[in-house]
């Protein structure tokens, strides 16, 4: 896995290999599971390398629709079976959707580190 970037009209998803951080920016409102495929694949590919810690940086993601939240939730649920990977989700209170939705992730994966700034 090298540094990767997935870009759309209003969003970009960048993977930083050194820090094992996936940074989300913009507004993600893709219309279905299929459209979230590339991001989904990126997340699972990073986990496949079994890093000690993996960070999802959502601070710059101003919107994520329900399909996106569903995709993230499933990813987090999948991590329950994958021990040894510490998932850190960094969010921001300035983004209205994050406050409530990110708490769900913690419920699905109790050892998830949720950092809301």
């Amino acid at each position: 896995m090298t540094g990767q970037e997935i870009k759309g009209d209003n969003y970009s998803v960048q993977y930083n290999q050194e820090t094992v951080t996936i940074q989300f920016q913009g507004k993600l409102a893709l219309s279905g599971v299929k459209d979230y495929g590339p991001i989904h694949d990126l997340l699972y590919a990073v986990v496949a390398d079994a890093p000690a810690q993996m960070t999802l940086d959502l601070r710059q993601l101003s919107f994520l629709n329900s399909s996106g939240i569903s995709m993230l939730s499933k990813f987090v649920l999948a991590l329950r079976k994958k021990e040894g990977v510490q998932l850190v989700v960094v969010g921001s209170n300035e983004m209205p959707w994050q406050g409530k939705s990110l708490r769900n992730l913690k419920k699905f994966l109790p050892n998830l580190k949720l950092e809301i700034e």
Partner: peptide, 13 residues
């Protein structure tokens, strides 16, 4: 009224 602590999405787990 916040409902985040009243359940979870259905069909995931």
């Amino acid at each position: 009224i916040d409902t985040m602590d009243l359940g979870l999405p259905l069909g995931l787990d």
